[in-house]
Simulated scan of single mutants.
Amino acid sequence: MKNNLDNIFKDLEGKFDLEEPTIGHFERFQTKLNKGSDLDSNKRNNLFYFIAIAASFILFFGIWIGSSLTNSGMELAELSPEMKETQSYFVSVIEKELQAIEIERNSDTEHLIKDALLQLNKLETEYQSLTLELKESTDEKRIIFAMISNFQQRIDVLQGLLAQIEEFKQLKTQKNETYV
């Protein structure tokens, strides 16, 4: 093994590169390295500024969205414990009626349910405008009465829908009995 290494070095003797770089090579190399790092730091700084600006836009957009969503009005529940109880009652009745309607949902009743839900959405929009009005108004009693009336109208719509569905089922049953 040792002889092999000695033979390899004897064969390569005189073939090694023994020249040295020209004068100033290290300084030129160092300046090139410094220029490259300056470019990299400029690129990093530009990227950092771009990310900072994008984050600022996202932050301001989020704040704007958040403020528009929180620009809601005043609910009945915020006025007094009695109003909170009243609102809870109406909301629970509406939820029960909606659950009863969902049980009755099928291809035959779908059209009736969609129409009723459109009416409910209109009433909900009116209610939201009433909450904004309540927040800014001094005539509380009139607005509170309108809000309670809105809840009652929603319940009436849902109960009317359930009655229509029941009539539809009875008519369908009678129709099937006459053909038998």
Rank of each mutant, 00 (worst) to 15 (best):
I103W: 08
S80H: 00
L79D: 03
V93Y: 02
F90Y: 15
L98D: 11
T86G: 02
V93W: 01
Q99A: 11
K84V: 00
I103H: 08
A100Y: 07
E82V: 05
T86N: 09
S68H: 13
T86C: 04
G73P: 06
L69A: 05
I94R: 10
L69H: 04
P81Q: 02
E85G: 00
E95F: 06
E95R: 13
Q87A: 13
Q99G: 12
E75S: 14
V91D: 12
F90L: 03
M74R: 08
G73N: 05
V91Q: 13
E102I: 00
E75C: 00
E85I: 00
E97Q: 13
E97F: 06
L69F: 13
G73A: 08
Y89S: 14
E102V: 01
L98Y: 05
Y89N: 12
E97I: 03
Y89C: 05
K84I: 00
Q99M: 12
M83S: 10
V93N: 03
M83N: 10
S72H: 12
F90H: 11
S72L: 09
L79Y: 03
I103C: 04
K84A: 14
Q99S: 13
V91Y: 01
S88Q: 15
L79V: 03
E97W: 00
S80P: 01
E78Y: 01
E78F: 00
V93I: 14
E95C: 01
F90T: 03
L76P: 00
N71P: 12
S72Q: 13
Y89Q: 12
P81S: 02
S88E: 13
K96F: 02
Y89D: 11
A100N: 14
L76A: 02
L69V: 15
S72G: 14
Y89I: 08
P81R: 02
L76Y: 05
A77N: 05
Q87M: 09
I94T: 13
V91H: 03
Q87N: 07
I94H: 07
I94C: 01
V91C: 00
S72R: 14
A100H: 09
E85R: 06
Q87I: 10
